[in-house]
Design a protein around this nucleic acid. Structure first.
Lengths: 185, 185
DNA sequence: GTCTATACTGGGATAGAC
DNA sequence: GTCTATCCCAGTATAGAC
């Protein structure tokens, strides 16, 4: 694999694990097996490299979501499929994790890909909810934008509760609770 | 205020803002207006001081939640009151924020107060939901533990989405979406 | 209890050789 | 493109004086 590619992927991993503040250029170089000069030749510094890595992670999140949301089945089944799909819960969300980072939130260049990813996700979920209202999966009373935000929040919050507990259980409970509420009509 | 107290409160603020990894002993000393020797006289180091600060933050979260959850009104009203109470949304949750921190999650001494806080919160919410089932506020079909986890997750996830967006809007949408679902019976 | 001195490592980056 | 040298400051802590 090429150096630039290794640098971006290593940065993605480290940002996921330790966040922006906790990730040093040296650690990136070690993980990517790239030298100091090499890294600074391809990127102006930590911030630019992080930006590339965050954009990549955002794209991966969108692709993974789209697999479920554009897949087979009724709208309700696709939402449930998305909620229940295999996840490495205790690792958390590689994009959502960055919202905790003050240096990411404070820098427009770094926050932008994070913001765009969740804007896309909420809009996409809202589409599927709206579709479900037309098919009768969901009651007319449901507001698609609100419901989409709730769905995205349960996942992000589920990760937080699971990591706090050191167990996937709270995540699973939260998701089941949401599925119950969505199905209760 | 005494030195120990200033150290703990300053550490709480810094942990909230920058997390454990992003908080240095020097920054704590500056914020607390305490010297190097003073801090190391009262605490063995950053970890012990952080533990004290996290325990304090956990206690504050519990007290704040209890105001709403043990307050006036029907169970459904108390849940809504808790969800809708005044919050500094863009600052995030001072306890939940720590679940993103690898050094907190990895250290049992530091993770314990975070875990206990959310265990307490979910149990307390489950009590109120169960009470609401008895009073007829909530349908018999609702599982209290699941629903409690969903409520806690919506809040934590709402913070994540809001900070990502740089706006409180996603938080408010997510909460409203949950209230809608809980009220739909 | 608090202060200053000291120590050592790592963070983040630039310069210039190869 | 990549390597090594170098720079300066911050992180985290210990030691001993006051």
């Amino acid at each position: 694999m090429e150096t630039v590619e290794r640098l971006i992927r290593s940065t993605q991993e480290l940002l996921w694990e330790r966040g922006y503040v906790g990730t040093s250029p040296k650690a990136i170089q070690r993980a990517a097996d790239a030298g100091q000069g090499s890294m600074y030749h391809h990127f102006t510094g930590k911030a630019e490299l992080a930006k590339a890595a965050i954009e990549r992670s955002g794209a991966e999140l969108r692709e993974a979501a789209e697999v479920q949301l554009a897949g087979e089945g009724t709208p309700a089944e696709r939402i449930s499929g998305y909620l229940g799909r295999e996840r490495d819960v205790l690792r958390g969300c590689q994009v959502g994790r960055l919202a905790a980072d003050p240096d990411v939130v404070a820098d427009p260049e770094l926050r932008a890909p994070v913001a765009e990813t969740f804007e896309w996700l909420r809009a996409r979920l809202a589409e599927v909810v709206a579709e479900g209202k037309r098919t009768g999966d969901f009651p007319e009373s449901l507001d698609p934008e609100r419901t989409a935000a709730t769905i995205a929040a349960v996942l992000q919050g589920g990760y937080v509760l699971a990591r706090a507990a050191g167990s996937t259980e709270p995540f699973e409970l939260a998701v089941q609770g949401l599925v119950d509420l969505l199905g209760a009509k």
